[in-house]
C-alpha cells in the first residue's frame, strides 16, 4: 500500500455510512446485496432518517439485514414483510418504514402481500432485490429465473413449457392503481449504482410526502449460485438479465413528478 501523502490537507471523499453497523456480512464475496443495502444506508444517512426509520427484513439472504443496518429492524415471516410494514406504518405514521426483500420472498411466497399492499396504496417503501435465483437455500429456481438458466432444481435449464416465463414484478405492480413509484434499476456498474441510489432516495421521499406505495427493483448478482466470478456475474446481469428485465420507470404518479426530485 502506498503511504498517504504527508503534510497535505485532505478530505474524505467516501466513508462507510453510519446507518450500517460494523458487522461483517454473511454475503459471498462480490454479492451485490451488499451494494444495495449500502445504498439504502447512504440514503438514510443523507435524509437524516436513521433514528426514524424502521426496516422489515424478509427471509432469504436478506434475512440478516437487521444485523447490518444500524436502524430499528424487525424480521417478518417468509413473504409477509409488506403486511408487517403496513401494520408498523399505520401505528407509527411518522416513521419511515421500508422492507428489504429478495425475489424468492417477494415474487414467490410473498406475492399476495405485496400485491395487496400496492392495491391499498400503503405508504411504505419496498427495496426488492432480484437475482433470479434462491440464493440462501442453495440456488434453486425462482419465479424470476431466466428461460434456460441452470439452477440446482432445473439442472437442464428452466423449461418454460413446464414452469412458464419469469415474472416481471415491476411491470406487474405498476399496473396497480394504488402504486405511486415503481422503477427497476441495476447494480452492475458504477453509473447504474448511482442511478439506483437516486431511485431509492426518491422512493423514500415519496413515502415522506405521504404519496403512497413505492418500490425499487434492483437487478443483483449471485456469483456463487450462478457459478461465475463476481465480475463475470456483473456481465451476466448486463447481457442476460437486462434484456428480459428492462430498466426503467414503470410508474411515476403525477404527484411524484410534481415533487421534481
Amino acid at each position: 500500500m502506498i503511504n498517504p501523502l504527508p503534510n497535505t490537507h485532505t478530505q474524505v471523499v467516501y466513508q462507510r455510512p453510519k446507518s450500517l453497523t460494523t458487522a461483517v456480512t454473511h454475503y459471498c464475496p462480490g454479492c451485490t446485496h451488499g451494494v444495495s443495502q449500502r445504498l439504502v444506508a447512504e440514503v438514510l444517512d443523507e435524509m437524516g432518517l436513521r433514528e426514524k426509520a424502521i426496516g422489515v427484513a424478509s427471509v432469504g439472504c436478506s434475512v440478516f439485514a437487521y444485523n447490518y443496518f444500524d436502524v430499528d429492524f424487525v424480521e417478518a415471516a417468509h413473504g409477509r414483510a409488506p403486511a408487517m410494514a403496513t401494520g408498523i406504518k399505520r401505528v407509527f405514521p411518522d416513521r419511515t418504514v421500508f422492507t428489504y426483500q429478495g425475489d424468492g420472498d417477494l415474487a414467490s411466497i410473498g406475492m399476495a402481500e405485496v400485491m395487496h399492499a400496492a392495491a391499498r396504496g400503503e405508504n411504505i417503501t419496498i427495496i426488492f432485490i432480484n437475482n433470479a435465483i434462491y440464493g440462501m437455500t442453495g440456488g434453486q429456481m425462482a419465479p424470476t429465473t431466466l428461460p434456460g438458466m441452470k439452477t440446482t432444481s432445473s439442472p437442464l435449464g428452466r423449461d418454460i413449457e413446464m414452469t412458464g416465463m419469469p415474472i416481471r414484478m415491476a411491470e406487474l405492480l405498476s399496473k396497480m392503481d394504488g402504486s405511486s413509484f415503481v422503477v427497476r434499476r441495476s447494480l452492475h456498474d458504477a453509473t447504474n449504482i448511482r442511478k439506483a441510489k437516486k431511485a431509492i432516495r426518491t422512493a423514500f421521499e415519496v413515502q415522506q410526502q405521504g404519496l403512497g406505495f413505492s418500490l425499487v427493483e434492483l437487478l443483483s448478482t449471485c456469483p456463487t449460485n450462478w457459478d461465475l466470478t463476481p465480475n463475470e456475474a456483473l456481465s451476466f446481469v448486463e447481457e442476460k438479465m437486462i434484456p428480459y428485465f428492462e430498466l426503467g420507470d414503470y410508474k411515476v404518479a403525477d404527484a411524484v413528478k410534481a415533487l421534481k426530485l
Partner: peptide, 19 residues
C-alpha cells in the same frame, strides 16, 4: 474518484483526496 467505493459491496473502502 471513489468509484471503487461505489462498487464495493462491503463498504470496506474509505477514500481520501488531497485538497
Amino acid at each position: 474518484c471513489a468509484i471503487c467505493a461505489v462498487v464495493c459491496p462491503e463498504a470496506a473502502l474509505t477514500v481520501y483526496r488531497q485538497i
